[in-house]
Simulated assay, not measured.
Amino acid sequence: MKKGLLWLVALFLLIGSLSVFAAKRNSNLIVIITPSHDNPFFKAEAVGAEARAKELGYQTLTLIHNDDANKQNELFDTAIARRAAAIICDNAGADATIAPVRRAKAAGIPAFLVDREINATGLAVAQIVSNNYQGAKLGGEEFVRLMGEKGKYVELVGKESDTNAGIRSKGYHEVIDQYPDLKLVARQSANWSQTEAFSKMESIIQANKDIKGVICGNDTMAMGAMAALKAAGMGHVIVVGFDGSNDVRDSILRGEIKATVLQPAYRIAQLAVEQADRYLRTGSTGEREKQLKDCILINKANANKLETFMLKN
């Protein structure tokens, strides 16, 4: 009798599990979670993912975590409660995102991460990111060339908790530190923010009127730095960014910011959706979990071909 009861319980649990699995397999919803769309880079990710998902016949729900790990937790719970087919996410922290991705996996919802990796493997189905180190080396080489291999310079770094901030800075210095006549006079985090970059640059300028260049961890900080330099009558200072935004493209074409490094945000987000669709249909993406996509140097020679984080042929 006891043995029969155990078999009955086991059968009940199995049927429940299969029902949940079937419900998830029948889901037509892809949830897209990114930082604030005030940054055009993240907006391009969301737009790219939405467009491709709809082309493939999915419904979409786009949510914003504002780089707040607690908010991101809530949004993952929303995706789980909505029985999403998959989650596309540009995450709010390499460590903070491990737990929500694990919860989604336990609920049978595959996660596809873009732009930023997490400090764990085997939880997300895919982590598709720009090759930030390769891109930073490209930016560093162009900065050295523009600087003529000498002069005082400033570095504005991204959010310290963001893995990409450290990788880009390391890539820059892998190149720049080979030139002893390039002197770093200030290095500060502006947290990827244009407003904060403007404020930090204003303070740096007061103590360093003779700087020749500023290298930035992203384009929004480059725009803030250039605005502060122009306000101080120092618009001639060399500024290099990273991302490939339309705003910096226009600045390059005006002869202000000198260069940036394009990371193809729009296409990477579309790839994540395409791999999610393949995974949901076949059980495999056919790709490794960690995938690096090369960056492209953008300067006056090719800036007119740049549009919404894509380089037109």
Rank of each mutant, 00 (worst) to 15 (best):
M226Y: 14
K290D: 06
A120M: 08
R254L: 15
A69C: 07
M310F: 04
C295W: 04
G151T: 03
A44G: 06
G171W: 07
C216N: 12
R102T: 09
E202T: 07
Y266G: 02
K152D: 09
L18C: 04
I32R: 04
A303K: 05
D277S: 09
A165R: 04
N246C: 14
K305R: 15
E174P: 00
D115S: 15
G151C: 07
G244Q: 11
G122F: 14
I238L: 09
G16L: 06
L146I: 07
E74S: 15
G158C: 05
L229V: 03
A10P: 00
A96P: 01
A227M: 13
E174V: 01
S189I: 00
D181Y: 09
Q72G: 11
L11V: 05
A272V: 06
A120V: 03
C295N: 08
K293I: 12
R102G: 04
A222P: 00
V175C: 06
N313A: 15
T260V: 06
V239M: 07
L29W: 03
R52I: 05
V185W: 02
L61C: 07
A84K: 10
L5G: 05
A84D: 05
I87D: 06
A51E: 12
G255R: 15
T308E: 06
M310T: 12
A265H: 08
D67L: 12
F41S: 00
A22D: 01
E160G: 09
F12N: 01
V248F: 11
S193Q: 13
R249Y: 06
S130M: 08
N132L: 10
L123S: 14
Y179G: 01
Y179D: 00
D115L: 14
R278D: 10
A207E: 05
Q270N: 05
D243E: 14
R52P: 01
N26M: 05
A225V: 01
N218A: 01
S199E: 08
K258C: 06
L61M: 13
A96I: 03
Y266V: 03
N302T: 07
Y172H: 05
R145A: 14
N131K: 11
P100I: 06
A303L: 01
I118N: 11
Y172A: 04
G233Y: 12
E274T: 13
D162S: 14
Y266T: 11
Y58C: 00
Q263G: 04
G255T: 13
L292E: 12
A104E: 10
M147K: 10
K290M: 11
A259K: 13
T60M: 02
N26L: 02
L11F: 07
Y266C: 04
A99P: 13
I298W: 06
A96F: 12
F76Q: 07
P180Y: 08
R103L: 07
A94R: 13
A126I: 02
A96N: 09
N302Y: 08
I215H: 10
G148M: 11
K200G: 00
G224W: 13
F309H: 01
A303C: 09
L271P: 01
